[in-house]
């Protein structure tokens, strides 16, 4: 500092001090203050019994408690995402993290096939829910469509493995149950979705064009079924084994037809404007199942065992589809926008 006056002024300021009395007064006040002791927190008598106290006593517990908290919090998020829809912020967690993890934890091919089939059905139900609320837009449709394709591909892989196991062990029926269930679910939910979305378009030839997801669901159902049938043609031994199962399956389908007919009659007893088209459509599908069953018997009588079994599976798929459509349709009944055949 070059300016002497400024320097002198600074030196003057540095001479400012407390008086001896002031200094003593402040010192005594501080060292005799009772504020410091009263500010100490009083420990609760229950502290030694508290969980937190035990954790604090053991540092190693942090390595257990903290990860546990993280796991529980993650579980909470996963649980919260369980019922999320495609328009929810938790939905990506559900489809990208929770479901793949669960899928990885299913070890048998059959369990994987069931899991992927159920996921495909879940996507359809999500689409139905949004369509019922008028929130099924194009981006969501695209997303669900892609997911549906993914689940179908995974299902097909799993079914191939189930098929191989059946060929090895000689047991049959599991893959067919899976296929008919998938076929029935896809077609039934596609039908419900078409009605809920109200998007009904007819081309120049008078053929009905369903919405994208519904079309994908139906196409995938046919794809899985056709792949299975093509495989059957190639394997003679499998057909022989299935003939042994033919009678059992036929009886089961008849029982299912009877049960669905009873449920349909019950729904028909109290018809409403919205349930009427559900009842009519279910009736059509049920009649289709009965026709397939009749055709299967015709094939059997002619000695065409392979044709009989294949047609029997079509009957099974149709009756399941009728039951699922009836159940789902009645659930969404009040949200149907218009008649099926307008």
């Amino acid at each position: 500092m070059k300016d002497n006056n400024l320097q002198n002024s600074i030196e003057e300021i540095k001479k400012i001090k407390m008086t001896a009395l002031e200094k003593k007064r402040v010192f005594e006040y501080v060292v005799n203050s009772k504020i410091s002791s009263s500010q100490e927190s009083i420990r609760s008598p229950w502290f030694n019994y508290s969980f937190i106290a035990r954790i604090k006593k053991t540092r190693l517990a942090y390595y257990v408690v903290v990860p546990l908290i993280i796991i529980l919090a993650s579980g909470g998020i996963a649980f919260a995402s369980e019922d999320s829809l495609p328009n929810s912020i938790l939905y990506p967690i559900k489809v990208s993290i929770v479901e793949p993890i669960r899928g990885a934890l299913t070890f048998s091919p059959k369990a994987k096939a069931v899991y992927e089939s159920n996921l495909a059905t879940k996507r359809m139900v999500e689409a139905e829910t949004l369509a019922g609320e008028g929130k099924l837009n194009q981006p969501i449709e695209n997303r669900l469509n892609n997911l549906l394709e993914r689940h179908t591909a995974s299902l097909n892989n799993a079914l191939n493995k189930v098929d191989k196991i059946e060929s090895t062990t000689g047991s049959i029926g599991q893959s067919e149950d899976l296929i008919t269930n998938f076929h029935a679910n896809m077609n039934a939910h596609a039908q419900v979705l078409d009605i809920l979305s109200g998007k009904k378009e007819y081309d120049q030839n008078g053929q009905y064009n369903d919405i994208q997801i519904s079309k994908t669901a139906r196409d995938n159902a046919d794809l899985i079924t056709n792949i299975s049938k093509n495989d059957e043609i190639k394997t003679e031994n499998k057909i022989q084994n299935k003939l042994d199962n033919y009678k059992r399956r036929k009886e089961a389908i008849q029982s299912l037809i009877d049960k669905t007919t009873t449920e349909l009659d019950r729904a028909s007893a109290k018809p409403s404007a919205s349930s009427q088209e559900i009842i009519e459509s279910t009736n059509q599908t049920l009649n289709r199942a009965k026709q397939f069953l009749y055709d299967a018997n015709e094939h059997e009588n002619k000695g065409d065992q392979a044709g009989a079994y294949s047609t029997l599976l079509d009957s099974e798929s149709s009756v399941k589809e009728a039951g699922i459509f009836l159940q789902t349709g009645l659930k969404f009944g009040g949200k149907f926008k218009g008649k099926w055949n307008d």
Binding site: E22, Y29, S33, I35, S36
Partner: peptide, 17 residues
Amino acid sequence: SLDITQETFLRLWQSLK
């Protein structure tokens, strides 16, 4: 200034304690 000085050293006293 005396009040603030007193409070400042009181905080130091508590921290040391």
